[in-house]
Amino acid sequence: MMELSLTTKVAALILLSGLIYLDRVAVVQMMIHRPIAVAVITGALFNRLPECTAVGVLLEMLWVSRLPVGASVPPDDTGAALFGTVAIAYLSFVREVGFADIALVGSVSVFIGEIGREMDILVRRLNGKISRYAIAGVELGDLGTVSSCLYASIVLWFVAGVILSFSWIVLGIVAGKFLIPGIPGTIIAPFQVMFLIIPATGAVSVYQHCRVSKKSAVFHMSLASGAIVFMIIEMGVF
């Protein structure tokens, strides 16, 4: 099979991400925009599946209880995953990556998610203007404007998605290729603790939102037994 060049892969990822961004709000919401899905797609594209999946797993877990309730706009977890996975893939082209690198990239990706949220808010505001055209059209009896305005909104979401994807992918390449390799190992090493803090933060958010009987007992028992079983597996007993 013909091997695609890195530039072609980046261009393909930008276009594909524009479509993935549509799944966040505008079209269907079939969860292809989740960090874990984005991570697997990026990992497969750059042939760095384990590294990208690790970042995707961290971010998926952090925003697992992300609730777009009413008018609240959640962080851009798709953009965060794009940045994080591209950064870790490019870092792995430079040197071997460890848990601390993955946790560092995961932590920086959280900023990206917060910035991306602003673009989401901007698109929703522009949609407000588009919806006024649709309402005016309906008042005048021109029902065709409803479809035209809706398609205009979809194009707007797609364009915003492509702009965001382009920005995060370029930023990810810069971070993975130039910035992170320049950070001393003594600064990166303590980030290993973030490998627990990031998923644990997501977990406690789910824990707080979930109303279920005996949740504390169920959660802590599962945690202890999970840790023990995985540690035994890690020690090579089996």
Binding site: M61, F99, F195, L196, P199, A200, A203, V206, Y207, V218, F219, H220, M221, S222, L223, A224, S225, G226, A227, I228, V229, F230, M231, I233, E234
Partner: peptide, 11 residues
């Protein structure tokens, strides 16, 4: 959730 966090602790 518990099993998942247990995995990260073991890691």
């Amino acid at each position: 959730l518990g099993v998942y966090l247990g995995f990260f602790i073991s890691r």
